[in-house]
Simulated assay, not measured.
Amino acid sequence: MSARLTIRSRSAMAINRPTWTCVRASFHASRYASPPIRRTTSVFQAITLTTRPFSSSSSSNNNNNNNNNNSKTRHQTTSQKTTNNPSPNQNRRRNLVLLATSATLLTSYLLLHLTLLHNPSLLSPSPLSPTTFSPFTITSLTPISPSSFLLTLTPKPPAPPLLLPFAPTPPHPHLPPLHHAWHHGLWSVEIKQPQLQVARSYTPLPPLSDADLASGTLRFLIRRVDGGEVSTYLSTLPVSATIELRGPHLGFDVAARLGGEDSVVFLAGGTGVAVAMQVVRALGRLPVGERPRVEVLWASRARGDCEGGMRLGG
């Protein structure tokens, strides 16, 4: 780079003053030189920068999340379009599934309904058995004498089936074993005392009507004994209380053992008259030409237990 320097001088303006020389330098750059820097503009300029921590992993995660969200949005949009505008094959398949499901449910219900009509006891299996106790409700407790009372029990009716509103009404679960016991002849049940966990056998009296037989109502003649665990417990129970029974326990089949005899004499003492009444009922159900003559002799220790009795020997 070459330059040419030109110096110009100016004469003094006064005799006694010093001479000032102004030098003006002029650079003539060649064609390869950079243009001169203008002194009126600053070379450096202050710029304020604000920095923050930057993680390449978080940035990539954000980008991935954004991409996933965008893909989910596109998938949802595609699914909504597919749902809103199902194809004919999808409509046909859905109709076939609904038709097959409806036909299966209807067929199953009809088969179950026909099965229950043929055997309605399937709705309520019998809980009364010789090995387990079943609940009964006291419907009446009538005193007969100072020491005896008549106890009436009724089984609770079965609950209607909730899932089968049009199913036939099931029979009472206690009725099949009770009907079998009444047809047998002599039978008894056990009544439990829950506090002491003891049970005593009692013989039911014959039903007064067909309604009592159909509802499973049982009646007992019970004499309260001093120190008796079960009889004393039963005499203190109120009406609507629940007691537990186990049975039936089948006893002597008097009709099968009758043979060709035409007369039967039964001796009963106290509450044992219930057994005698069962014998009379069992023999009274025989055909007219086969019924024997039955005589029952009933005695009791206490005069008050013999209602309507009369004094003998003066």
Rank of each mutant, 00 (worst) to 15 (best):
R94S: 05
S71Y: 06
T82N: 12
T51D: 06
Q90N: 12
S87T: 12
R94C: 08
N91H: 14
Q80W: 03
L99S: 11
S87L: 04
R52T: 05
N91L: 15
Q76R: 11
L98Y: 14
P88Q: 10
A100R: 08
K72W: 04
R52F: 07
N68F: 00
S56N: 12
N89D: 11
N65S: 07
N61K: 10
Q80M: 12
Q76T: 10
A100E: 10
N84F: 00
S57H: 13
T83L: 14
R74A: 15
Q80V: 10
N61D: 15
N68P: 00
T73R: 09
T101W: 09
K72F: 10
T104F: 07
L98K: 11
S58A: 14
R74L: 12
L99D: 15
T82W: 02
N84K: 13
T101M: 07
V97L: 13
H75L: 14
H75T: 13
S71T: 15
T77M: 03
L98M: 14
S71L: 09
S79A: 15
S102C: 07
Q80G: 02
Q76G: 06
S58H: 15
S59F: 15
S55N: 09
F54G: 01
Q80K: 07
L96D: 13
R92E: 01
N95W: 08
N69M: 04
N65T: 03
S87A: 11
S56Q: 12
K72N: 12
P88R: 09
N91S: 15
H75Q: 14
Q76M: 13
Q76K: 15
S59T: 14
S55Y: 02
S57E: 13
K81I: 03
Q90F: 06
A103D: 00
T82G: 04
T50N: 05
T73H: 05
